[in-house]
């Protein structure tokens, strides 16, 4: 599936909850719980995403020109958010990641919910993932 298709899928899933923000958040937390556990050795200070209020770890794995991510967070909602990013960008090439536009967050009605302080954290996650893509692209 393309990045656009995955985002559209996520938007369709969340649309079932209409304007019920509480249910959306419960669903988001469930998604976070399904995120595969991180290798403990990767959950270090070095891989903490700077600029998030809650703790987020992101570990990049490069395989055959594609980027995969291990991720975790100490808060359930943030873990849900990062799980969506992993779903969208995991297994994609650096070019695909760097050239993609993320529009799902607004469409699932989360941009105002996340709040300015937390969305800074969300932007930091996005920036960090794009930086890994940039680094892999350069190394290739």
């Amino acid at each position: 599936m393309t990045i656009t298709e995955i985002q559209d899928d996520i938007i369709a899933d969340f649309s079932l909850f209409e304007d019920d923000m509480e249910s959306k958040l419960f669903y988001l937390m469930d998604l976070g719980k399904r995120l595969p556990p991180m290798t403990p050795a990767h959950q270090t200070e070095e891989y903490i995403v700077k600029g998030c209020q809650s703790k987020v770890w992101l570990f990049p794995v490069f395989e055959e020109g594609k980027l995969f991510f291990e991720a975790d967070s100490n808060t359930e909602i943030t873990k849900g958010l990062v799980s969506l990013l992993v779903k969208i960008w995991g297994g994609k090439t650096p070019e695909e990641i760097m050239s993609s536009e993320l529009y799902f967050i607004e469409k699932i009605g989360m941009s105002h919910m996340i709040g300015s302080q937390r969305s800074n954290g969300f932007s930091s996650m996005i920036k960090q993932m794009k930086m890994y893509a940039f680094a892999l692209n350069k190394a290739q």
Partner: peptide
């Protein structure tokens, strides 16, 4: 087992 940020956001949703 609940982080205060999660609780804050869940309550804000209400």
């Amino acid at each position: 087992n609940k982080h205060h940020f999660d609780i804050g956001l869940m309550l804000d949703a209400k």
